[in-house]
Amino acid sequence: MSPGRALAGAGLTLATLAALSGTGPAGAPGGDGPVELTAALASGAALVQPLELARMIRERRPVRLVDVRDSSEFIRFSLPTARNASLREMGALQPDESGPIVVYDDGSGSAVRAWLLLRRLGHEDVRVLRGGVLGWVEDVLSPILPASTAEERSRFDSVAGLSRYFGGLPKIGDPAMREAAPVRAEAAITLISRRGCY
């Protein structure tokens, strides 16, 4: 038999076995297929806001926080209760129905990759922290909120209490100030670290 015929025979055999191997998304070990996962990401349902996460931690609600940045960055600064894990260590996370897994990064995209992996590994409730570390610094550690009306004052007090709980420095002001002088995550973290809160 010529090599060409042998290769064609091998290919057809593997393809026939593939057709007989059962239906469903190829090799999905569990959870949703690519279409459902993409829809969940696009809808924003997979995100958790920094302030919502801060409340969950403060209220001791069951949440597993996973930092997917390098270990050196994790040692320098991490969110309270977080553990550090690389993408290859995602498989070691045990399924737990009691609360969500929240993953975060520094905007590198690793958190979205970790979210995809965890969903494909069968974890039902997985979320990505909106904005990652910078989102936490901006919304929780250095919030800038108006307080000119009673309603705004009430909201400021609520957020400021949460921010101070985590060692933050809330400010009264126009949130547009942020656009004029965006928060520098490094500077904010250094400042808070010096205050001995982390």
Partner: peptide
């Protein structure tokens, strides 16, 4: 076309054997 079929069968069977994550 040989390359296409080889890659396709490789991706399919590696996925089925749990050695490849297709969503990535």
């Amino acid at each position: 076309f040989t390359a296409v079929v080889t890659a396709m069968l490789g991706v399919f069977w590696l996925t089925r054997l749990g050695l490849l994550e297709p969503s990535l």
